[in-house]
Computed example of a mutant assay.
Amino acid sequence: MWQHPDMPDFDEGDGDKCKAWFAEQGLEVMMDSLEYASPEIADRYFESNDPDCSYWEPDRPDGEGWYCLAIHDTDDGPVCWWARRVTTP
């Protein structure tokens, strides 16, 4: 659906490669799923059989510095990957 232009394309099964890339970039990553959005949003998406989820506003994680890294479809519907730089004390 969309991803940050600097993020490589990962295939299904590339979990270790993906985690390694996050670590190399110094990123902390959190995921939000449309599947767990409000019933109105989730039902609208799953009952429409339409891939458009532009009306969904994924929940940003608590804290500062989070930005949307990617929104893509899964077998369970769209997910949003939020990322931020890892800060060291």
Rank of each mutant, 00 (worst) to 15 (best):
Gly65Ile: 03
Asp6Pro: 03
Ala37Asn: 04
Thr88Tyr: 15
Glu64Cys: 06
Gly65Phe: 00
Asp16Ser: 11
Arg44Ser: 10
Cys68His: 14
Tyr55Thr: 13
Asp75Phe: 05
Glu35Ala: 13
Met30Gly: 07
Pro5Met: 07
Phe46Gly: 06
Gln25Trp: 00
Arg85Ser: 12
Ile41Gly: 11
Gly13Ile: 01
Leu69Gly: 01
Gln25Gly: 06
Glu35Pro: 02
His72Pro: 01
Cys68Phe: 04
Glu35Gly: 02
Glu64Ile: 00
Arg60Ser: 07
Phe46Pro: 12
Asp11Arg: 05
Asp11His: 12
Trp56Val: 02
Trp21Gln: 13
Ala23Gln: 10
Trp2His: 05
Leu34Thr: 00
Thr74Glu: 08
His4Phe: 00
Glu40Pro: 02
Asp6Val: 09
Gly15Leu: 05
Glu28Trp: 01
Glu64Lys: 12
Gly13Met: 09
Phe46Lys: 10
Thr88Ile: 04
Phe46Gln: 10
Asp76Lys: 10
Pro58Asn: 08
Ser48Tyr: 01
Tyr36Val: 09
Glu12Lys: 06
Ala20Met: 06
Tyr36Ala: 14
Trp66Val: 15
Ser54Asn: 06
Ile71Asn: 02
Glu64His: 07
Trp56Ala: 02
Phe10Gly: 05
Gly26Glu: 12
Gly77Leu: 05
Met1Phe: 10
Pro5Gln: 08
Thr74Leu: 05
Ser33Ile: 11
Gly63Trp: 02
Pro5Cys: 02
Tyr36Thr: 14
Arg85Pro: 01
Ser54His: 07
Arg84Ile: 02
Asp9Cys: 08
Ser33Phe: 07
Cys18Ile: 11
Trp2Val: 03
Ala83Met: 03
Asp76Glu: 15
Asp43Arg: 14
Met7Thr: 06
Arg85Gln: 10
Ala20His: 03
Asp6Ile: 03
Ile71Lys: 14
Gly13Asp: 08
Phe10Asn: 03
Pro58Ser: 07
Glu12Phe: 14
Lys17Arg: 12
Asp52His: 04
Pro89Phe: 04
His72Trp: 07
Asp59Leu: 13
Met7Trp: 04
Met1Asn: 07
Pro61Glu: 01
Trp81Glu: 11
Thr87Asp: 09
Phe46Ser: 13
Phe22Leu: 08
Met31Cys: 13
Val86Phe: 01
